[in-house]
Simulated assay, not measured.
Amino acid sequence: MRRLGLIFLISGCVKPRISSLKVADFVLVDTSQPATEYLHMQRSMDYPIYYTGPVKDTINIGQRYERRRTPIPRWPEIFPVSYTYSDKNLRIEVDTSFDANCLEEHYSKDWEIDPDLTRNYHASVFTIQNISDSIICMGETFSIYYMHRELKNRQGQWIQMEKSLSQELFCGTGQPTIYIKPGEMILSKVKHYKGTFKTDCRLVFGRNDRVVYSNVFSEFVDDKIFSFNDTEN
Rank of each mutant, 00 (worst) to 15 (best):
T127W: 01
L187C: 07
T196C: 10
I92A: 01
S82C: 14
D87N: 15
K189L: 15
L117V: 00
Y83G: 02
G172R: 00
S188Q: 08
D95P: 12
P80V: 09
T177C: 00
Y121T: 02
G156W: 11
H148R: 08
K194T: 04
N89K: 01
G172M: 00
K181Q: 07
L169F: 08
E104T: 05
S188N: 02
W111P: 00
G174E: 04
Q160P: 03
S134L: 10
E93P: 00
I113M: 12
N89G: 08
L169G: 06
L117P: 02
Y193W: 10
I178E: 10
K109A: 07
S82N: 10
V94P: 06
I113K: 14
T173D: 03
E140N: 14
K191E: 14
I144H: 02
T84C: 06
H192Y: 11
N89L: 11
Q129V: 09
S82I: 13
E150N: 12
I144D: 03
F79P: 09
Y83P: 01
N89V: 07
D114K: 10
R119D: 02
T177M: 03
R119S: 02
I186D: 05
Q175R: 09
P176L: 10
H106F: 14
Q155T: 09
T96M: 13
G183A: 03
H148Y: 15
K163Y: 07
G156D: 06
K163M: 15
L151K: 08
S134N: 14
F98G: 03
A100H: 09
V81D: 03
I113D: 06
D87H: 09
E162T: 15
E140W: 15
G156T: 13
C102D: 15
I186A: 04
M161H: 06
I113E: 09
N130I: 05
Q160V: 05
P182F: 01
T118H: 07
R119W: 01
I92E: 02
L117A: 13
R119I: 02
D110T: 13
W111R: 10
F98Q: 09
I113T: 13
Q157T: 10
W158I: 14
Q157H: 10
N101D: 07
S86C: 11
G156M: 14
Q167R: 12
Q167T: 06
L117Q: 09
Y107Q: 08
P80W: 04
P115R: 10
E93K: 01
E104V: 05
I135W: 05
S124A: 11
K194H: 15
I113H: 00
N130T: 04
T84G: 04
P182C: 01
E162W: 06
E104L: 01
T173E: 06
E150Y: 12
E184C: 08
I128E: 04
N101M: 06
R154K: 15
F142R: 11
W158F: 13
R149V: 10
D87P: 10
G172N: 05
